[in-house]
């Protein structure tokens, strides 16, 4: 349900719709439901609709018209009573996109130098860590930090692990990582403090590609464990 949100003007051309203040799947599903409803409503003058964990940023053309009219249209577009049934269903299921993106990932070794540390922290064998990481269907809560970087919700609580005390200055592109309760994929070589569990050979973000980002907000994501040989093969293909 989309009811119960606060609208805060952030800038002359930006509103922030707040649905809660925590990182949880239910709140995030409401954010994506609202984003979808606003996109479907195709309101004139809206430039950006960007979901975060618990809030939705809406940017509009400040010269297009009257702010109050815009607020009213947004509120109306988000009125659950006026929305279609299938949307309601997707909201209740917490699933906003029909798409499932499968991410092949090579776990441990050079690809995931922190796998042993995660296993030790979780008091689990390495294989069990990999099994638990690949067992879950994640959802893309938001994209940020770097272009196309997916923040994934759904990590098995036993795999949660605090960030490294000393962040790495260079995390390789494609690194699959755990930071607290979140898991994500480094889109390119970046500095970062998350624990590196594995690496995907897929190019997560490429500005020259027709669809530059592998993920969109609300997507479902599954990891599939691959060996070093398949990693090399897939890397060649996606290069």
């Amino acid at each position: 349900m989309t009811t119960g949100f606060a609208i805060e003007p952030l800038a002359e051309d930006t509103l922030l719709l707040r649905f809660g203040d925590g990182i949880d799947a239910a709140t995030n599903a409401r954010v994506h439901a609202a984003a979808l409803a606003l996109r479907d409503a195709d309101l004139a003058g809206i430039v950006d609709i960007a979901p975060a964990y618990a809030s939705l940023l809406v940017r509009f053309d400040p010269f297009a018209g009257n702010d109050n009219a815009l607020l009213e249209t947004i509120t109306k577009a988000l009125d659950p009573g006026l929305r279609r049934d299938d949307e309601q269903k997707r909201v209740t299921q917490g699933c906003m996109a029909d798409r499932i993106v499968e991410i092949p990932a090579c776990y441990g070794g050079d690809c995931g130098p922190d796998l042993d540390a995660i296993a030790e922290h979780a008091r689990l064998p390495r294989d069990e860590v990999i099994a638990r990481h690949t067992a879950v269907e994640y959802s893309v809560a938001m994209l940020g930090f770097a272009p196309g970087f997916p923040y994934l919700l759904g990590l098995d609580p036993t795999l949660q692990m605090p960030r490294r005390a000393n962040p790495r200055t260079r995390v390789p592109a494609g690194s699959v990582a755990i930071g607290g309760a979140q898991t994500g994929i480094y889109t390119r070589e970046l500095p970062g403090g998350w624990q590196l569990i594995g690496r995907t050979p897929l190019v997560v973000f490429d500005q020259a590609r027709e669809t530059p980002c592998l993920f969109a907000p609300g997507d479902r994501v599954r990891f599939r464990a691959i060996g070093a040989d398949e990693f090399v093969q897939l890397a060649k293909r996606s290069a």
């Binding site: 952030l10 922030l16 618990a54 938001m142 930090f145």
Partner: peptide, 28 residues
């Protein structure tokens, strides 16, 4: 929790010294 950012936003990190965001600011 991380939420949307726009140019012009004035944030206060733990250092106590504000940061004013420019056009290349992060989106969240």
């Amino acid at each position: 929790v991380s939420e949307g950012c726009v140019p012009g936003l004035l944030q206060l990190p733990p250092s106590g010294h504000p940061i004013a965001f420019g056009p290349e600011c992060p989106v969240s």
